[in-house]
Amino acid sequence: MTTTYLQPGDRVLLTGDSITEWGRDHDQPDSPWGLGHGYAGIVAALAGARRPDLGLTFHNRGVGGDTTRMLRDRWHPDALALEPTVVSVLVGVNDTWRRFGSGDVTTTAEYEEHYRAILDAARERLDPRFVLVEPFVLPVPPVSPAWREDLDPRIHVVRRLAAEYDAVLVPADGLFAAAASRTAPERWAFDGVHPTPAGHGLLAEAWLAAVGLAAR
């Protein structure tokens, strides 16, 4: 069997904003419908198909519109209470979006403070393994060059935290940039932020490759 970051019986939490939420049923969060039809659902489907022997359980707790502060505010009921053994986080683009959409500014330092707080709380309570996914944008309106300037420092925060917390890093920003260089960026994220079905597939495959479950 291929060596993987995941272990038998792992409970995997995927959380963050709307990119993770993507169609999940909030009323039946732990049913098959609770995984949604974005990258989180694809990850669960393919991981289960490729390694049924691991007996993995997946939970999706993405919430549309969430910033790092909002994720921190709900961290106990939506993360720690589930007692995951693996915690996957994708958050940050709304910290940028809200700056330009509503003037609600989260500085890079505040972003790191909130992100670090959720990782520390999980480590102290559960000591899980972490998968950190870079936030990303593509040059499709309403995304502008100013968004990129705001988001880039947050991406560097995630990379630094991944090294510090011995986490698996999913290099999503570079992945989407490379994909968009081969075709129109709208093919991967229809508004520069939210992935198309192809974009969700791309992200899911990158997540699986990062944990050692790439297609053979």
Rank of each mutant, 00 (worst) to 15 (best):
M1L: 11
T3S: 13
T4V: 08
L6Q: 12
L6Y: 10
Q7K: 15
G9D: 08
T15N: 12
G16N: 07
E21I: 06
R24K: 11
R24F: 01
D27F: 05
D30N: 15
P32N: 07
W33K: 15
L35M: 11
L35N: 05
L35Q: 12
G36R: 10
H37I: 13
H37R: 15
A40L: 05
L46C: 04
L46S: 05
G48D: 05
A49P: 00
A49I: 00
A49G: 01
R50I: 01
R50P: 00
P52Q: 10
P52M: 03
D53R: 12
G55Y: 10
L56M: 08
T57I: 05
T57A: 14
F58Y: 14
F58V: 10
H59R: 15
N60Q: 10
N60K: 09
R61V: 03
V63F: 11
M70C: 06
L71S: 08
R72F: 01
R74G: 04
R74W: 01
W75K: 12
P77A: 10
P77E: 06
A79F: 02
A79H: 04
L80Q: 07
A81W: 03
L82Y: 06
L82Q: 12
S88R: 13
L90V: 11
L90K: 13
L90R: 14
V91F: 03
N94S: 09
F100S: 11
S102K: 15
V105Q: 10
T107D: 01
E110H: 12
E112C: 07
E113R: 15
R116W: 00
I118M: 14
L119S: 04
L119K: 09
A122H: 04
E124I: 00
R125G: 00
D127V: 04
P128N: 04
F130I: 07
F130G: 07
V133N: 04
E134D: 05
P135M: 12
V137Y: 06
V137S: 08
V137I: 14
L138G: 09
P145R: 13
P145A: 08
A146P: 00
D150T: 09
D150Q: 11
L151G: 03
D152F: 00
I155H: 02
H156W: 01
H156K: 13
V157Q: 05
R159W: 00
R159M: 02
R160M: 00
R160L: 02
R160A: 12
L161C: 01
L161G: 04
L161P: 00
E164S: 10
L169M: 02
D173S: 11
D173Q: 14
L175V: 03
F176W: 06
F176M: 14
A178R: 15
S181C: 07
T183I: 02
T183E: 10
A184C: 03
P185V: 03
R187A: 13
W188S: 07
F190Y: 15
F190M: 11
H194Q: 13
T196S: 14
G199L: 11
H200Y: 11
L202V: 08
L203H: 09
A204P: 03
A206Y: 05
W207E: 11
A214S: 10
